[in-house]
């Protein structure tokens, strides 16, 4: 019963904030709505007995990652409607129709497919405690995918380094070469 009540409160908040993310014209507002959305999802996770996931979602996504988001938005100064141009005239209408069709299909199928027995609670998996159960799975059954994640993170770190680090001497040289003859101003 309490589960249903929490769901009825957090569910609409998650949906509504998701709509506001894409409808706000101000990027900062979108980011703030996204925080609310992620928090509502965290509540839903806890509601479904996935406490660890809920806490991680709250701390990492709603906390750390959103701070980075806001930093980037502020640094780039994208606060107005600069990004809302339409490249293809009827793009927004067509994509809206297709999006609603896709969402409708998904909702219809998930509603029809919902079966209490198949989607049971996490009681079995949580029998030794939620964090313990998760840790046991990560370090036994899913050890390999878990370790492959570290490769992914290395690639991300190298990528960020390449894209963000100042240009090398070689690149500066090519810059000068390309602009030789022009008046290079900084």
């Amino acid at each position: 019963m309490s589960e249903t009540i929490v769901f009825l409160i957090a569910g609409p908040i998650a949906l509504g904030s998701a709509l506001f993310i894409i409808m706000s014209k101000n990027a900062v507002h979108s980011a703030l709505w996204l925080i609310l959305n992620l928090m509502a999802l965290a509540v839903l996770f806890v509601d479904l007995d996935a406490q660890f996931l809920g806490v991680v979602q709250f701390i990492i996504y709603a906390g750390a990652i959103m701070v980075l988001f806001l930093f980037v938005i502020m640094l780039l100064g994208v606060t107005r409607e600069e990004l809302l141009g339409e490249a293809i005239p009827i793009q927004r209408v067509v994509s809206g129709i297709l999006g609603v069709a896709l969402a409708g299909t998904l909702v219809w199928i998930l509603l029809n497919a919902y079966d209490e027995s198949a989607f049971g609670s996490l009681a079995g998996a949580n029998s030794a405690g939620n964090v313990q159960g998760l840790g046991r799975l990560l370090f036994s059954k899913y050890i390999f995918p878990f370790e492959v994640t570290s490769i992914l993170l290395i690639v991300a770190a190298i990528g960020a380094m390449i894209l963000a680090r100042g240009r090398t001497e070689e690149e500066s040289a090519s810059e000068v070469e390309r602009h030789s003859g022009e008046d290079v101003r900084l």
Binding site: V155, L163, R178
Partner: peptide, 26 residues
Amino acid sequence: NDLLLSFLAIETLSLALYVMVGFARR
């Protein structure tokens, strides 16, 4: 042999390729 690993592998190769495509920064 596992969809989870497939996803991680796809992300690893894609992330590396996104950076390599943009390797010519100028």
